[in-house]
């Protein structure tokens, strides 16, 4: 039936591959995972609570299994599906990000408690042509968590960043964050532009 429709409408439309609908292979482990979480969180061991937990876990698994199976496509630069980050890169990235968060909070606290309120806010446009969504997401969130900058919007390869101080803009221009995320994902980074 699908083929006859495409024949009548001309060339076939390219449909991106989709994960199958409901699948027990996904739903059962998902339900078990949730039931385990329920056991840890409720810490009740009588039949009433166990039954409630099993019922809840099954309901959520049935409703959400399709979403779990259908993870968003993450495409690499050469059209390959994104396979993951080498763990050693992740291990070095996380503590660095944590330190940045601490520095960010200290700096905002210092600016805020300073009697003269030394702020000079501006918008900065960062261009970072990352090939997959996960890299963009990581960069946007990392910018938000680092000193004096908050990502407002992502439009294609352009990141619109609000910087609280002038130094925040300079740090964006140096591109440390873009390089960090680039090396984390093993892709090439981008450049910064004042708006």
């Amino acid at each position: 039936m699908l083929e006859s429709t495409t024949d009548r409408l001309g060339p076939p439309v390219v449909v991106p591959p989709r994960a199958a609908g409901f699948s027990l292979l996904v739903a059962v482990p998902f339900a078990l995972l949730q039931f385990g979480l329920w056991l840890i969180l409720s810490a009740e061991r009588d039949w009433f609570h166990l039954g409630l937990g099993a019922l809840t876990a099954c309901t959520v698994a049935v409703l959400a299994a399709r979403l779990v199976a259908q993870s968003p496509p993450i495409i690499d630069a050469d059209g390959q599906a994104f396979r993951g980050i080498p763990w050693y890169r992740f291990v070095t990235y996380l503590p660095w990000l944590g330190a940045q968060v601490a520095v960010a909070s200290l700096r905002v606290a210092w600016v805020v408690l300073h009697p003269r309120l030394p702020i000079d806010p501006r918008l900065v446009r960062v261009r970072a042509p990352f090939p997959h969504t996960l890299a963009k997401l990581t960069l946007a969130n990392s910018i938000t968590l680092t000193p004096g900058t908050v990502t407002l919007d992502v439009d294609g390869d352009d990141f619109l960043v609000h910087s609280l101080t002038e130094s925040g803009e300079h740090e964006l221009e140096e591109g440390t964050m873009v390089n960090r995320v680039s090396s984390l994902f093993g892709v090439t980074g981008g450049a910064t532009e004042r708006r």
Partner: peptide, 30 residues
């Protein structure tokens, strides 16, 4: 201390975007 700084920031900073900084950073760490 950090949550307190965040609150002071929300009161002192001039506009919505600047207040985002106080809320997003100080409060998260605090």
């Amino acid at each position: 201390g950090f949550v307190f700084a965040g609150v002071i920031g929300i009161l002192r900073l001039p506009d919505f975007y600047c207040r985002l900084h106080a809320m997003g950073k100080c409060d998260t760490l605090g």
